[in-house]
Amino acid sequence: MTHTANPGAARIESNDRVRGGTLRSVEVGPARARVSPLDGGQTLRLALLLALPVIGVEQLVHTDRPTLAALPLYQALHWLSDTLLALPLAAVAVWGGQRLATRLRLGERTPPAIVGRACLIALLFALVLVPGTALHDAADRLTHVHVLFPTHSHVPLPSRAAPDGVTTLARFVTHALSDGFVGQVVGLPLMILMLAWEGRKPRPEDGAAPAKKEA
């Protein structure tokens, strides 16, 4: 995890046991820290602004128009609850995307760098939404939110042939991933805008090292 108490010399701890095998610390200088914005508040802000539209798009995709029109307050609350429940996943995507971008030496102010960062975050969010979909379905089952839709078989449901587990899993992952990417139609542009906005903000270290050109 990240400690940013000393912005001038961030101390990054990693528990990456694949390469190092043991907990190790990496000291980075001010310039490295500046392109690795791992501030918790910022992460949460970005995560919320990522989750809200992406979850909203997914809800729109999966809800027929009459249903949306029928119970608008219910739909809004559903959107809110899904967004809040997905916030940790979005935070992971933001944090992970930023960290990956830093490792890839992407800056945070030039348009290509911002787009690259945003793409990484969007990609990560789409990926984490795959297990997120399973969690979402579990939450729905627990709270019966969709119980009326798929299981009430007064409706002549089509018979479900029982495919093998691998096929079922593959279908689920494909579906969830596709949903995740669809959501990024809105999430990605917003993330680009947000990163550009965040990149324009003056940083504490900007006073010490103004106008330093990115590599």
Partner: peptide, 11 residues
């Protein structure tokens, strides 16, 4: 989020 979801339960 969980609280909202809980209280959205149609039962």
């Amino acid at each position: 989020g969980a609280l909202v979801r809980w209280q959205l339960d149609p039962t």
